[in-house]
Amino acid sequence: MGILDYANPTRVMRFSRAVKPWVGGLGAIVLAAGLYEAFVTAPADYQQGETIRIMYLHVPMAWLAMFAYALMALSAIGTLVFKHPMADVSAKAMAPLGAVFTAICLITGSLWGKPMWNTWWVWDARLTSVLILFLVYLGIIALWQAIEEPIKAGKITAIITLIGAINLPIIKFSVDWWYTLHQPASVFRVDGPTIYPAMLYPLLICAVGFALLFFFAHLVAMENEMKRRRVRAMQMRAARRTTPLPTTRPAEGAA
């Protein structure tokens, strides 16, 4: 079995319990440092003023939303190709996290856009792509909820996740294309090509902090999912226990 053998539920659980506090603790420290830098040390933008600080939330969320989808797609390959039970536990734990990152990204984008564009929403190419990613996340979560059997749900969702992984770049490309076609008069580019180091470092520290927090949450969610599955396995076992019928009445009915 090789490396897959290391990923049995018992080992993952043990690993998760050992690693979780460290990941969480480190994440909290890095994030605190990052947010301090972002909200206290980092300079305000000469044009946008203090609102630039939303960037330290908004951009890492956008990165993590995509990162989570990439990991989910990897898990989907694990489910479909290696048929590994831990792969769909991982994928299932990932979906709500990705959706939350995407939602925060959209909300912060909207808050950031309000003073810039004087409206809560613009059909900007980036925001629109993130909105579609959000829709895909929600669809995948709904799919997880719709199928009762966890294994079947895992496989079906893995297929949709992979189709999404193939399609999201196509969607991104088409939305960018669509946006340039309908280019409005002049939209202020909120995140231009250059960024000052004084802003970049806090941004990267925040991103690392949020990523650690994400791994922590993912471990917690995986543990919960494993427990949920264990309960279900127990119930399936309990249902299989056969109670012998009274011998006087033969069993009847269709198979």
């Binding site: 579609i132 829709l135 895909v136 799919l143 949709i160 399609n167 196509i170 969607i171 939305v175």
Partner: peptide, 9 residues
Amino acid sequence: VIILPFSIP
């Protein structure tokens, strides 16, 4: 819900 986003392109 699942298919519509993919039909955007």
